[in-house]
Design a binder for these strands. Structure first.
Lengths: 239, 239
DNA sequence: TTTCCACTCCCCAAAAATGGCGAGGAAGGC
DNA sequence: GCCTTCCTCGCCATTTTTGGGGAGTGGAAA
């Protein structure tokens, strides 16, 4: 990891990729070019689907999924609240579960140093692009300082492609809510009762119900709470 | 707009900014450096607040806000569904309202060419970074091809700073939920009724109520829906 | 050791939400 | 001109949620 390597060819390779396999090749090539242990692009959908493009050993991936580690992984939890790319050292590893998780990860070949970039797309899509390595703090600080900008761009391109392929697989996935429906759902999410919302919007409570039901239907939700949660995770309403 | 200009100093200026004024200075400087008409960073807040850092004439900004143009602006509507940076030519300007909007914009000094980059942060934050100019299609295509990567990075830095300043204004209120409470809230957000959730968790419905009420109390929520929305926007539960 | 907090269980009555029925006007796109 | 979507309104019965009580266990922290 001496001087800075030109990553331009990798960006172009990513840009030209026409299938998920292309991303995986680019991923491996990038790892080798940077001379680090692992790179993982991890994608979580609002529907709960996951797509991972990783150089981690399969045993770790399996274990991660089996243990539902995404619920305690400080990288996920921390990045979900931030916009900044973040060094793993700055995350909160104080909890008991977090420590056990870290130990387990190390034993499965995950390096001690990590740098993760959160990325968000439409409809509540959330992805993480992570570089991982085994080395001392100083070496790692040099590495991240040198490449952080390139990594942001690469993460962006990665996600762009992943979304592109996903859009091909699931066309017409998102139906938007009408302005009135958005108003209704937003006020409900803020804790107002139906009577209060109807009053706020200056409409009858029954009209309000029509909006709520219509939104529920569009979102494929089972009840109002579900509709709110769905609308929020798809980014249709903001609270 | 001949050869490519080095934008490194602008990135550093952005990185070093410690207040919103810094962003505005960087904005103007970037516009002059690139030799284009306008640059606008536009941020839509959770509460519906808007922050704009723009070189557009004030008359246009006022008109945009007064007319609630964000509801029909094809740039906003188009970018809200995409991840890609997008050239304005590729957006849908077919609607009647859209055409009137475009005409109005031109009359207020907005250029005919535009390139917008959508950016998303935590809690449904959404921002747009746009460069705008008056020129022919070919010139503009050259410009965007040359600078698209730099613009993505600049947009990213812009948003990072804007979020940073916003975070300072609203410090964290973090109170965690107990594991059982998280389970309960998560299942409720997935649309299950209390009876179903209680069954899923193998506890009585009354016990479940205790969790829900406890979570409501901790989150300062007025009802269950509000609690779910609050927990989601604070990242305490993931759906 | 005492004092928290998380977890578990129960009853009753009031308030809120949902399901199902139906109806009409206005605006914009093909 | 037709068709779709959006916005608006009403009533009744049923189901679900909520608010008010109270009670006992175990573990972890102070």
């Amino acid at each position: 990891m001496g001087g800075k390597v030109d990553l331009e060819p990798i960006l172009e390779e990513l840009d030209a990729a026409s299938a998920l396999e292309g991303l995986e090749q680019a991923n491996t090539r990038l790892r080798d070019t940077l001379g680090i242990d692992h790179i993982v692009y991890h994608w979580v959908d609002s529907a709960g689907d996951q797509y991972g493009c990783t150089t981690y050993p399969q045993s770790w991936v399996d274990r991660y999924l089996a243990e539902n580690y995404h619920r305690i992984d400080p990288v996920i939890l921390g990045c979900f609240q931030r916009f900044h790319p973040v060094d793993w050292k700055r995350l909160d590893w104080s909890g008991k579960a977090a420590k056990a998780f870290l130990k387990d990860a190390m034993e499965h070949g995950v390096g001690n140093q990590g740098f993760s970039i959160p990325i968000r797309g439409p409809n509540g899509q959330f992805a993480l692009f992570t570089v991982n390595n085994s080395c001392d703090d100083e070496t790692w600080a040099d590495f991240t300082a040198t490449y952080s900008r390139d990594l942001i761009l690469i993460a962006h391109y990665f996600n762009r492609k992943a979304l592109e392929f996903e859009a091909n697989r699931q066309p017409e996935f998102s139906r938007t809510l009408s302005p009135r429906e958005v108003d209704a759902m937003t006020l409900l999410a803020l804790g107002y009762s139906r009577a209060q919302v109807a009053h706020s919007l200056s409409i009858s409570e029954h009209t309000l119900r029509v909006y709520i039901e219509s939104a529920r239907f569009k979102l494929g939700a089972l009840n109002t709470t579900h509709a709110i949660a769905t609308a929020m995770s798809r980014g249709l309403i903001v609270v």
